[in-house]
Structures are given as C-alpha cells and as structure tokens.
Write a protein that binds this DNA or RNA. Structure first.
Lengths: 192, 192
DNA sequence: GTCTATACACAGATAGAC
DNA sequence: GTCTATCTGTGTATAGAC
C-alpha cells in the first residue's frame, strides 16, 4: 500500500551520508548512483548540476533541523533540558563510521563551494545560533540560568565548541570525545 | 650572499597556503607549481606522491607550532598571558582570504586522507591539547586559576571551541567572529 | 632539477535510444 | 525515468630529453 519512496529523496539520502563522511567535493555522481542500483546519468536527471544537488541537500537538512528544534521547544520549558536535548540531536547525525553534521563538513569545504551553497550553510548556522540564543535568554529571564555574558556570545561559543568537538573526535577515532566536550560545554552555559 | 631558498621549501610554502584555504584534495600539483613558475612534473621530483607532500606539510607545521608553544612558555609564567599568546598564534595563521589553521582544514578532510597523514594531524592536536593542559594545570597549582573541572577536559573544550570558531567565522565571512569567541573561551578558562 | 609529452583514471555533464 | 555512449576537463603520476 505504501508508495515507493521517490528517487530524488533516496538520492539525497545516499548523498547526505556520503557528504557527511567525505565532504562535498569528494563525492561523485557515480558514488551516489551505485548504492541505488542506477547510473550516474539518472542522478543528473534529478539534479542536473552538482550545485543543485548540494543546495537541495542543505535545504532539506536545515528544514529537518528546524523541525527538531521546534519539537524541543514544545517538549520542555527548561533551558537545561532544552540544551540536553539539543546535544542529543547531534547524536542522531554522528555515526561511528565518521559521519558528522552535514554543515560542519560543508563549512570545511566552504571556500570551494558555489556561493549559493555556502549561503545555505551559513543559514543553517544562523538557525542554530538564533535558537540557542533564545533558549539561553529565556533561561536567564526566568531565573533558571545566571549568564555571565550575553546570550548571543555564549550561544556562539557553545556552537563553536560542538563543531570543533565533532572534528576532533572524528580525527582521533574517538567518538566519546564529542560527548565529553559537549557535556562540558553545556555545563559551562549553566554555570556561567 | 643569502642562499636561494630551496625549491622543496617553497613548494611547501605555496602548498600550505592553498591547503589552508581549500583543503588537501582540492589542491593539485599544477595549482602548486603555477605560482612558483615551474611545471607540475618538477613538484613530483621533490614529492613523488601527494601523500609525501601532505606528510611533509603537516610535520613542518607541527614543528613550527612546537617552537611557538615553547617560546610562549619561556616568555611568561602567567597562565593568563600564556593563553592570550596562544590565541595570538592563531592570528598568524588566519587570513582574511579564508586561510585557517592547516590541521583544522585537514581534520575536515580526515576520512579521505591516507592513514599516515591522518595520524600526523592527530599528533598536532595532541600537541596542542597537552600544552594547554599543562598551562591550565600549572595555573591551577600556582593559585592563579581556580579550575572547576579537570585541566584535560577544559583544554579539550578550549581547543574545540577555537577549531569551531575558525570554521564558523570563515563560513560567514566574518573573521571578527573568531576573535570574539576565542576571547570568550579563554575568559571561560580563567573564570571556571 | 626542470622540462615536454603522455598514460591512465575519473570527474561533471549531455545526447539520444528505449 | 533510466539507460548506453560519449565529450571534455582535470587529476596523479611516469618516461625520457635536456
């Protein structure tokens, strides 16, 4: 009864996993078509230019993230719990095989990406930073947190720490490192 | 009277600048030979395989960093000043054109790098982390700092924050962002 | 040590049959 | 929508002249 998932979505699924691991430039149309049992020309039918594919990839990822963040806000009014849930969300994108956040990888590729794609990545980070800022602000206003700096700057610091933690953990083949740093970074937000 | 700088070193100079910007895989032998006024075959004479070039690149970068860190230790006994100098060192590798720390870029490329090269990158981060740990430990022992967590974990957090800050700042074409986050991260070490 | 020339693989992309 | 076939560019790397 269920419709077969359309090819464009499955292309994006495979492409995303590959890009999360190797980066945008190190993934080819053939890399993507192979696991799907189709030919690279078929991928071009759905995404004529690689830039098209890249933009669709980031947009879909950002939409998905937006939904997750919205869900967290609805699930709890506590800043502590919101931040913990935010950290949990990272666990869903990090894999032992080396996959990390799509946009963290693309940030590394940024200077080689088409400008239109780089802007999409930038928007992803803005989304995260704005959300974190609001969570910290709200926690401060309600008295749950006692921030020692502006919510904007602390949000930026937390985001940066998580980005860097993913890179460091992956480079040293030590996924546990992300957890340790992530937990500590959040604790810092609560303690500041 | 001064000897002409040997070609191998100049190759590494050009290669490093290019890799700091685009990453390892997005830099070709022709990209490197062009600015030097030679042909790509000449680069192969000095570094037969690209992996050879990559390893030399990271080793030289790490040696240079080791010297800088040693210099900082000799220049001041204060943890505060040492951390500030450490941040200053980042300023020498970050450029408005998009160049950031060589090993931060290579961390993004890690899964596509030859294993021997990845290990060299890992060593670079270990070097930084060990140094930072010692600085924090020393500052704590002397009473200058009051750490609220282990020096190891705080060093990891600081390193991760700086890594991430470089990526975020570059992605949004806002070099000033690195400064702000970096300063705040160091302040966190002093305040913990 | 640097050159020209070239081998070989693979990339993104397109044309046209089915 | 997917295929085969192909174009064109570029990458790493090597052979051999100078």
């Amino acid at each position: 009864m269920s419709e077969p998932v359309d090819t464009a979505q499955r292309i994006l699924d495979v492409a995303q996993a590959l890009v999360q691991l190797r980066g945008f430039n190190a993934v080819s149309y053939t890399d993507i078509s192979g696991p799907l049992g189709i030919r690279n020309a078929s991928v071009h039918y759905h995404f004529p230019l690689k830039t098209d594919l890249g933009i669709s990839l980031v947009r879909r990822y950002r939409r998905h993230t937006e939904e997750q963040l919205e869900t967290i806000l609805n699930a709890t009014p506590s800043a502590r719990q919101r931040l913990n849930r935010y950290l949990e969300a990272y666990r869903t994108v990090i894999h032992p095989d080396g996959r990390i956040c799509l946009c963290t990888v693309l940030a590394g590729d940024a200077p080689t990406l088409p400008e239109s794609m780089r802007r999409e990545v930038e928007e992803f980070f803005k989304l995260n930073q704005t959300w974190l800022t609001q969570v910290l602000e709200h926690g401060n206003a309600s008295g749950e947190l006692q921030l020692r700096d502006t919510p904007e700057l602390l949000a930026e610091l937390l985001l940066a720490a998580l980005e860097g933690a993913m890179l460091l953990a992956r480079t040293s083949h030590a996924p546990g490192r992300f957890e340790a740093i992530g937990q500590r970074a959040i604790k810092a937000m609560l303690t500041f």
